[in-house]
């Protein structure tokens, strides 16, 4: 059952900037390391295949994927787009700073495949302290809120 409102113990509300509007709920997948989409993910499955990354072997499909910012080549946008085409994309993404590579990939996904993946950045508090992998997270990228349920 879904925890409800401010009466629930362990609920944290974080505010941020809406990069791509939308709503999503899911389990958090959190890393403090920058993430490289090109050759860092298998678009067909959503599995993280960058051996040097701490999330190696985990899967981002359907997760609320939280990482500081992207890195690597400017083809990251079409790697994200292919992940969306294959139905393996995260449910939402939250960054400290979302770069054009990530925003472009998600916008293309919405326009080409009608899949809406909310993206937010500039959180008003230290998200890496407030959110852990496995937490239940609700994103409202219309209002600009990230609700975390411990």
């Amino acid at each position: 059952m879904q925890p409800r409102g401010s009466e629930v113990k362990g609920k944290v509300v974080i505010r941020g900037r809406c990069i791509v509007k939308g709503e999503a709920v899911g389990e958090a997948l959190v890393t403090k390391q920058p993430f490289m989409f090109p050759h860092g993910i298998n678009p067909e499955t959503g599995e993280i295949i960058d051996k040097r990354h701490e999330l190696f072997g985990l899967n981002m499909k359907g997760k609320i994927f939280i990482f500081p910012y992207g890195k690597g080549s400017t083809t990251g946008s079409t790697w994200i787009l292919e992940t969306i085409r294959c139905g393996s994309a995260p449910a939402a993404m939250v960054n400290l700073e979302t770069e054009p590579v990530i925003a472009t990939g998600v916008i293309l996904g919405e326009l080409l495949y009608g899949v809406r993946i909310p993206v937010m950045d500039h959180p008003d508090t230290d998200i890496f302290q407030k959110i852990e992998t496995g937490d239940h997270v609700k994103i409202d990228a219309y209002k600009g809120t990230i609700e975390v349920y411990k």
């Binding site: 678009p43 079409t78 790697w79 787009l81 292919e82 080409l112």
Partner: peptide
Amino acid sequence: SSLHDAGVEMMER
């Protein structure tokens, strides 16, 4: 190698 099938579909569109 980086645009994948999605990139082909985008360009053809």
